[in-house]
């Protein structure tokens, strides 16, 4: 188990969030962007967050598509509601992890990162947001399993 500095599991079970104002604004903007995906058909993250369930089929079962939208939105909403909180419950930390993982796939898809080579060739500028989201996810993965 690695040592975390942003998300800390406290002895009472809560997860402390040591993000500064810049970090919270960064997360809030990304989560707001994720919420927009469901209402904007041409959103650049849409292909990453609305991938086919059965690629061999002409269309996926609309009930499953709706269920996915419901789950994705509820994670994003819960994460957004708690973005300024000092402490998170396990459920809230999971919502952060799921929402930020969807954000990561959206951002990387928008920037054309589909292979290791794409990432290796990317500029530091293009990668900076991705690295920051990955750092948050690394730490969340540590504390949700603690």
């Amino acid at each position: 188990m690695g040592k975390t500095t942003i998300f800390i599991r406290r002895r009472d079970g809560r997860i402390e969030v040591r993000l500064n104002d810049y970090g919270r604004t960064f997360v809030r903007d990304l989560l707001t962007h994720l919420m927009d995906v469901e209402t904007q058909a041409d959103h650049p993250w849409r292909s990453a967050t609305n991938q086919p369930i059965d690629p061999a089929s002409d269309a996926d079962d609309p009930l499953w598509v709706l269920e996915r939208e419901r789950m994705t939105s509820s994670h994003a909403e819960l994460a957004l509601m708690t973005v300024d909180d000092e402490f998170l419950t396990d459920a809230e930390a999971w919502a952060w992890l799921c929402a930020l993982q969807n954000v990561l796939r959206g951002v990387s898809s928008e920037r054309g990162f589909f292979s290791d080579t794409d990432v290796e060739r990317a500029s530091d500028d293009a990668l900076s947001d991705v690295r920051l989201i990955q750092l948050l996810l690394f730490e969340l993965a540590e504390v949700v399993t603690a």
Binding site: I53, A56, W64, M71, A99, N102, R105
Partner: peptide
Amino acid sequence: AEGYCVQLHAHGLHASIEQ
């Protein structure tokens, strides 16, 4: 399988089903 795939998608992983 569809249910699990949808959960994986909602958790942000790249997944699909196949027979």
